[in-house]
Design a binder for these strands. Sequence first.
DNA 1: GTATTATTAGAGTATATACTCTAGTGAGTC
DNA 2: GACTCACTAGAGTATATACTCTAATAATAC
Lengths: 228, 228
Amino acid sequence: MKTRDKILLSSLELFNERGERNVTTNHIAAHLAISPGNLYYHFRNKSDIIYEIFLEYEKLVDFYLDIPEDRAMTLDDMTFYLESVFDGLWSYRFFHRDLEYLLDGDQRLRQDYREFTNRCLASISRIFEKLADAGIIEPQEDDLRAAMSLNVWLVITNWMAFLKTAHAAEESACLTLTELKQGIYQVLTLEIPYLTPAYRDQVMALREKYRPSLPEINLASENAASCK
Amino acid sequence: MKTRDKILLSSLELFNERGERNVTTNHIAAHLAISPGNLYYHFRNKSDIIYEIFLEYEKLVDFYLDIPEDRAMTLDDMTFYLESVFDGLWSYRFFHRDLEYLLDGDQRLRQDYREFTNRCLASISRIFEKLADAGIIEPQEDDLRAAMSLNVWLVITNWMAFLKTAHAAEESACLTLTELKQGIYQVLTLEIPYLTPAYRDQVMALREKYRPSLPEINLASENAASCK
DNA sequence: GTATTATTAGAGTATATACTCTAGTGAGTC
DNA sequence: GACTCACTAGAGTATATACTCTAATAATAC
């Protein structure tokens, strides 16, 4: 594997693990056992690394949220979208954590991220539209659908931050992908009132699968072990 | 005014304006035209300053979210809660921005914040309950109410981050309290399906008042002037 | 082979950051 | 006037951080 790619990979790993703020270029170089000079041969600066990682993230989510227009949407499609988006969020979880700071320091990233957000919102809205076409949810006015999509986006992108901050007193809140996916429970909660009678039971059963196991009592018991 | 209080005030101001990450203790001292030594006479470290600011924030929100149990809830009450919470969020807006990092660095804060979140969630849930008692929304099962409350919390606490990141290409996204309060529109969107026929029109009218003026086209026009 | 280019090491630098230490100052007390 | 004590100044420090520079080595082209 090329040094350049190794740098991107290690950076992502370290960022996710410790947070971008706590990872310096020297840390990244040390982690790869290369010199800082080498790192700076491949990237002009830290922002550049982050920007390239963002491009990967963007590509992944765009791929996941590509809506097929040649057929009706199924419940399985919806499940796939939700699972995939949370997978993406997990793989690049450092990103939303320090988002504001990152955007402040890189105009390119700010612009791109803004367009990315708009594409995601449009996709979510389109999914709602097609779910209505498929008779899974009741059709809604454009306005309401837009506002709902935005709420879905807010819940999705901030679910992890909530988990991390609401978690018990362990310093580096230790999260699992499973816990993260309980965000799906929250997203489906938003849809409940709009479900058609025909699909209501099915969706409620699906939602049940993501229900948090123990509401708030994760006090360092089973987690402690799986924590790195 | 005591030096200690001036430090807290200036810190909050600078944190809100530039973000905690971009404000050093030296900046704070310089801004007040006092020496770093003086600052450190009053506070052991930066975390201490942040913790004290959090206590203020906590007190404010706890005060706002105190639910009177001796009378029925009105629509005005709900408006007051929403307005107040967003006011609080605005006054201490730096806090949610770097939340994860701040909690990672201070166990006390982590613990307190966790309890704070739980209190807020309980209050939101209680508000829903009393809105149902008052016939404004349909009563809901405990489970659903809890999940809804959590969604409300997610939307409220992350609305500002969304605005800042979704905003146009100006570096320090310039936000106004008015824009922030459009978050109320989003929160009320969550309630729509649960409104009783008797109150539906009233709440929809209220919601309309917070509707974003121009969906996405705030490109540095009127804002540029009011921006610092 | 020789020339060119891509890649790497590693010491070094300018700046910043959080925080410390010493030496006071000034207002009140007896 | 001597003493106390809350408060303040300001220089200083250890460490970190992002990044640069030079020189060397490996890879490739001709």
